[in-house]
Design a protein around this nucleic acid. Structure first.
Length: 487
RNA sequence: GUCCCCGUCGUCUAGCCAGGCCUAGGACACCGGCCUUUCACGCCGGCGACGCGGGUUCGAAUCCCGCCGGGGACGCCA
């Protein structure tokens, strides 16, 4: 049997990390089994659907490196891939159920149903539809219609049936049909069929072999199995992924902070790190290797290794992974991705030769965890109008000799023949130290401050070489004049 | 309330199905040391968990029962 899985998000305008993980696991499962990964847009609820929102889904998946074999934009033999375009197909199958006498019209209004639910809850009963309209006569229906009521279509849930299915993650699950909340709606009063119905029709017609989705769908599964059977379809295999929780162990939501894929992209996480992190949320490779590329993930991914317990979404590990990926990323690509962050911080990376910029990124990448940290470190290289930080100033003022160190270093640098590089820089510092009898912190820190205005940063010789003599001199002059003003 | 799912270090997890190799392993975080005349990186080390109670067994994180705790679902949302 060939493997066909689908990711079927509803276009809400943002891609939640939970959805992203569902997509990823579907993708990994499909590719591991040389199967197809299908994208289907669940937009039956018309009011909520918009073109823009569909684009958000495409972009998130693309960013993550997930490619779909069939979908609304790329086509395929099982289309259309948008539920809003499949109405005729649904109609056909609804007719089938009508003919079999498995559905009936229900005229209860939303308010009536809500009231009923509330009362049931107050009595401590589970909320359920009582089947009030199940045996309406034609005359009664006519009367209700005349009142202006538009009926919904409900599916007749059989009594006392135990519905069983083998979940690939959770194991055997069984539930009584009496527990389903009564006859459920499959067509709204406006004629649009409801999720539980269309998902069955679509999955069956698209020949989906494995339905892999979030755990919150477990309670829908028995209803859907009933529909598969009623429609004469083969029931697919199910796999319900554990929930992703917030730090307080409740379902992850916006109040827990960043939860959309876009936010992670904007914060400067690399897609490879993000995907790697998501994969580790509820799944673990047999060989224990944790830093894995998409190819390596595909190679190792087994649905049976998915943990059945929910996972807390904690980004500390993501941060670590991002650091790892930043350090091993191709330098030209990393530079490309970093430039927008530098610009946003008011720096002008374009004023410098690309080759030189890459060298700079190559040095500072060791220091940052996300791309948005880049300006903080790259600033040292990209702007010369530095100001001495208060902390640094305090350090210099504690000991007059410290300022002398800067002055002498400046003089010596000016007298230097040719361009400066790491070795000559070190030699120069050494000379200054000898002449002024300064060493350790008293020697290096003033020079650092003279050049950068800060008390910490990248290694001085490297910084000096990349900056070059001319810029070093300019910076030292600037710092010196700042010190003079204060004195 | 009812049903369903889940419960191993702070977090992600390995081990559980096929009980002894588990004085419970790894990763991240945290703490300490080394390296670096700063910070970071790197290296070394440390802290730290089987929810509780019964039972079965020579032996239980692993099997059984109960309890407790957490989560989810109960929509003309998906």
């Amino acid at each position: 049997m060939s493997v066909r899985v689908r990711f079927a998000p509803s276009p809400t305008g943002f891609m939640h990390v939970g959805n992203a993980r569902t997509a990823l696991f579907n993708y990994l499962f499909a590719k591991h089994n040389r199967g197809k990964f299908i994208l289907r847009i669940e937009d039956t609820d018309l009011e909520r659907h918009s073109e823009e929102a569909v684009k958000v889904i495409y972009e998130a998946l693309k960013w993550m490196g997930i490619k779909w074999d069939e979908g609304p934009d790329v086509g395929g033999n099982y289309g259309p891939y948008r539920q809003s375009e499949r109405r005729e197909i649904y109609k056909e199958h609804i007719e089938k159920l009508k003919e079999k006498g498995l559905v009936y019209e229900c005229f209860c209004t939303t308010e009536e149903l809500e009231k009923m639910r509330k009362e049931q809850l107050e009595r401590g009963e589970p909320p359920r539809y009582t089947g009030k309209c199940r045996n309406l006569t034609e005359e009664e229906k006519e009367k209700l219609r005349k009142e202006g009521r538009k009926p919904v279509l409900r599916f007749k849930v059989p009594k006392d049936r135990i519905i069983k299915f083998k979940d690939l993650v959770k194991g055997e699950i069984e539930i009584s049909s009496n527990q389903l909340g009564g006859d459920f709606v499959i067509v709204r009063s406006n004629g649009m069929p409801v999720y539980n119905f269309v998902v069955v029709v679509d999955d069956a017609l698209m020949e989906i072999s494995h339905v892999i989705r979030g755990e919150d769908h477990i309670s829908n599964t028995p209803k859907q199995i009933l529909l598969y059977e009623a429609l004469g379809f083969k029931v697919p295999q199910f796999a319900h992924l554990p929930m992703i929780l917030g730090s307080d162990r409740s379902k992850l939501s916006k109040r827990h902070g960043a939860t959309s894929v876009k936010e992670f992209k904007e914060k400067g996480y690399l897609p490879e790190a993000f995907v790697n992190f998501l994969a580790l949320l509820g799944w673990y490779p047999k060989d224990g290797k944790e830093v894995l590329s998409m190819e390596e993930l595909i190679e190792r991914f087994e649905i049976k290794d998915v943990n059945s317990a929910p996972a807390v979404f904690d980004t500390t590990k993501l941060n670590w992974l991002n650091q790892v990926y930043i350090r091993q990323y191709p330098l030209n690509k990393l530079t490309e991705l970093t430039i927008p962050y530098l610009k946003k911080a008011g720096l002008n990376p374009e004023n410098f030769p690309r080759e030189w910029l890459e060298k700079v990124i190559g040095v500072v990448r060791e220091y940052f965890t996300t791309l948005s940290d880049a300006p903080k470190y790259a600033e040292l290289f990209l702007r010369d109008d530095i100001e001495i930080e208060p902390e640094a100033l305090k350090f210099l003022q504690e000991e007059p000799k410290r300022v002398e160190v800067i002055k002498l270093f400046y003089e010596k640098l000016k007298g230097l023949n040719g361009e400066i590089e790491q070795e000559s820089f070190k030699a120069l510092v050494k000379e200054v130290g000898k002449e002024l009898k300064a060493k350790g912190k008293n020697l290096f820190m003033p020079i650092r401050i003279g050049i950068t205005g800060k008390t910490s940063g990248v290694e001085l010789p490297i910084l000096a070489e990349l900056l070059g003599k001319e810029r070093l001199i300019k910076r030292l002059e600037r710092s010196l004049s700042q010190l003079k003003e204060i004195a």
